[in-house]
Every structure is written in structure tokens, then in C-alpha cells.
Design a protein around this nucleic acid. Structure first.
Length: 213
DNA sequence: CTCCCGATAT
DNA sequence: ATATCAGGAG
């Protein structure tokens, strides 16, 4: 089985396994998704959603975040971890939104990654989910881990992994594909102790039963 | 490369 | 006790 054939099989099986796969961060507009995604670094979506429930009641526009004192913002997001750098980045990011984009969330990779706290992963999440723009594949910790286990890449660098995945998956499925891998990573292919015996991909996964520790 | 950091599962 | 969680900046 070639790598391309395996990628196609992964898509087919996971599409059937997770027909309602979607972004599990809570948001009602592009700005909320941007803030939630910045907060999601090294933190569970569940925790981010607890934090944003209160935060989004207070802040509705980019200008609201700029006006909110850093210390108050830190109190809102404290339990999500990295709270000092995240608070600093959110304020600087929103300042950029106000100054360069009239308070709106931009729709290009370059404009998004120019914002504080926004890297390629966060930009791809916003573009794919808030704007339905498929310019790349979201490569987070789950996509990185599963791509390696499934033999879809031999690289460790997220940018190179993304390039490999873009060649293996049709562009119109890029956003869905990342959701499939993330859902599978959360529900079956755990980082620490993957459930290979119960895995829907065990027949085609080169790592099935071989993950140590 | 290191640092940022609290919550949770093992 | 330790690994991990929708990473990014310096």
C-alpha cells in the first residue's frame, strides 16, 4: 500500500467514523475563534471553553481587549496556562486588528501570522473554520502525532508535515481532514497509550500495536 | 534551542 | 511524579 493509498483510506474510514467532526472550540464569530485558538496552545479545548464563556461576555470587539487591563485579562484566562504571554499576545494582537484591519479579523495567511501570538496553525484554524478558506492544513500536536504514526510523513517539523499532507489530501478536504485526525487523536489514538486494538485504522496503520511506552 | 504555565490523566 | 494538552516568541 502506497502512502497516497493509505492517506485516501484514512480519509474514507475517518469520514465514516466521525461524520460530524468539527471545531470543538466554542465561538460565534471570527474574532472569538481567533482568541480561543490563541488560548488553546498546550491546553485542552474543554478548559478553553470554560475560560472563554466568561471572557466573551465581557469582550465583544478587538477594541474591548485593547481597553481591558492586562491584569484583568490574566484573571479571565489564568487557568488555561501560559496566561501572562497569552494575555500579552491577545492585547497586542487586538491592537494590530484595530490599527491595521479596522477591528476585523483578516482573511490571509500573511496578515494573520503578522499578528502577535498567531502562527501558521492558529491562522489555518481561523481561515478554515471561520472563513471556509482552505489554504493549508492545521498541524497541531494531534495531527503531528497521527501523521507520524500513520506513516503520512517522515518529518517532525510542522511546516514540512503540512506540505506532505497537502500533497496527500484533496484541497477541499484539508479542513475536514485536520478535524478527523484531531477527533481520532482525542478519542482513540492517544499520545500516551493509544487504543490500537479498538482502532478503526488498525488494518492500514503501520504503527498498529507498535507504539511503545 | 528554551521558556512560558495550569489542569488533568496515568 | 510525570506526560500531555488544537503553539508561539525570543
Amino acid at each position: 500500500m502506497t502512502r497516497a493509498e493509505r492517506a485516501e483510506a484514512v480519509c474514507q474510514i475517518l469520514a465514516r467514523t466521525y461524520p460530524d467532526a468539527h471545531c470543538e472550540l466554542d465561538y460565534t464569530n471570527p474574532l472569538e475563534l481567533l482568541i480561543a485558538t490563541i488560548l488553546s496552545a498546550q491546553c485542552t479545548d474543554k478548559r478553553v471553553n470554560i475560560v472563554t464563556k466568561d471572557l466573551f461576555r465581557t469582550c465583544h470587539t478587538a477594541a474591548d481587549y485593547v481597553a481591558l487591563p492586562q491584569e484583568q485579562l490574566e484573571d479571565f484566562i489564568k487557568t488555561a496556562g501560559f496566561y501572562r504571554s497569552k494575555a500579552k499576545n491577545i492585547k497586542a494582537c487586538c491592537q494590530g486588528l484595530v490599527e491595521k484591519h479596522g477591528g476585523d479579523v483578516p482573511r490571509t495567511m500573511d496578515d494573520l501570522t503578522a499578528l502577535a501570538g498567531v502562527g501558521r496553525k492558529t491562522a489555518n484554524v481561523v481561515l478554515g473554520n471561520a472563513y471556509d478558506i482552505n489554504i493549508g492544513v492545521v498541524v497541531d500536536t494531534h495531527v503531528q502525532r497521527l501523521s507520524a504514526r500513520l506513516g503520512l510523513t517522515k518529518h517532525a517539523d510542522p511546516v514540512k508535515i503540512e506540505q506532505d499532507l497537502m500533497k496527500l489530501v484533496p484541497q477541499d478536504k484539508w479542513t475536514l481532514f485536520s478535524h478527523w485526525l484531531i477527533w481520532h487523536g482525542r478519542r482513540r489514538c492517544y499520545a500516551r497509550k493509544p487504543d490500537c486494538p479498538g482502532c478503526e485504522l488498525k488494518e492500514i496503520c503501520p504503527s498498529a500495536g507498535k507504539v511503545k511506552k
